[in-house]
């Protein structure tokens, strides 16, 4: 996946000012930066979710498998099936059971799986939730703890077998133990999926990401292998940020 010269606006606010970035397949890419630097906006541009907000606008190209997802004949709804997303706050559908939540993506797309039980089991296993919920699939998704709900949301995204999984601060509403489980999961999932994770927690980026990009004021300041960014940053602002001098 590759973003080319992405500009994004919220009404008059210019939130992203020309971001170009190649995302490596089947690796974890972390996006770090201070609040308001455009990191969430950037991932929301990668599955055309930015434009869902009234008054929001995007310019530029995002290439997925060589196709520009902002091309004229592209249906944004179809893009989102290939580029899944997990949000800051766990948001399982409250009217649905755990099982229905996992299948929600298929049902919303009008696809009927020949073997829904298999889809549910596979997705929940991938999200490391199967053992905890296999006997209570008929219970409501909201009956789970926050960390379990977030893993349910991950399972819900994985059930559609996306190419890319975007995670927008997926642990910011979770306690440290639940966070550790999600981080472990991100690491496991990277063998199958391309993952982009936004985080305000630099230790998290250092722990889970193969590549890290530092965003500041709507621009990409530095991008490279996580080890290099954290040990030998080339840019003074990156160094100031990761050493905690601002942010």
């Amino acid at each position: 996946m590759r973003a080319e010269n992405i500009h994004a606006w919220f009404g008059p606010t210019h939130a992203l000012k020309g971001v170009t970035m190649s995302i490596v397949d089947r690796q974890v890419t972390a996006i770090i930066g201070p609040s308001g630097c455009g990191k969430s906006t950037f991932v929301r541009c990668l599955n055309r979710m930015h434009e869902v907000v009234p008054g929001a606008r995007v310019e530029g190209k995002v290439l997925l498998d060589g196709q520009n997802i902002y091309g004229t004949r592209i249906n944004p709804v179809r893009v989102r099936r290939h580029v899944g997303m997990v949000f800051q706050k766990p948001n399982p559908f409250p009217t649905m059971t755990i099982r229905e939540n996992v299948l929600a993506g298929l049902r919303l797309n009008g696809q009927s799986s020949s073997d829904p039980e298999h889809v549910v089991e596979t997705a929940l296993k991938q999200a490391a939730l199967w053992e905890e919920v296999k006997d209570t699939l008929g219970k409501s998704g909201s009956s789970l703890s926050g960390g379990q709900q977030q893993r349910l949301c991950i399972a819900r995204a994985l059930a559609l077998e996306p190419d890319v999984l975007l995670m927008d601060e997926p642990c910011s509403a979770l306690d440290p133990i639940a966070t550790a489980r999600i981080e472990e999961l991100v690491h496991e999932l990277s063998s199958k999926y391309t993952i982009v994770i936004v985080t305000h927690n630099m230790q998290q980026a250092a722990r889970v990401a193969d590549f890290t990009a530092f965003f500041y004021q709507g621009e990409i300041v530095e991008y490279g292998e996580t080890d290099v960014i954290f040990t030998r940053p080339q840019n003074q602002r990156t160094e100031d940020y990761i050493t905690g001098r601002f942010g």
Binding site: R80, R81, N91, N109
Partner: peptide, 23 residues
């Protein structure tokens, strides 16, 4: 109905009508 649920629905590749009807 909170905005986060509509977004969850859109992110799963649902259009407006499906989001309305199912969620």
């Amino acid at each position: 109905v909170p905005r986060s649920l509509r977004e969850a629905c859109f992110a799963l590749g649902a259009d407006r009508w499906q989001t309305l009807r199912q969620v």
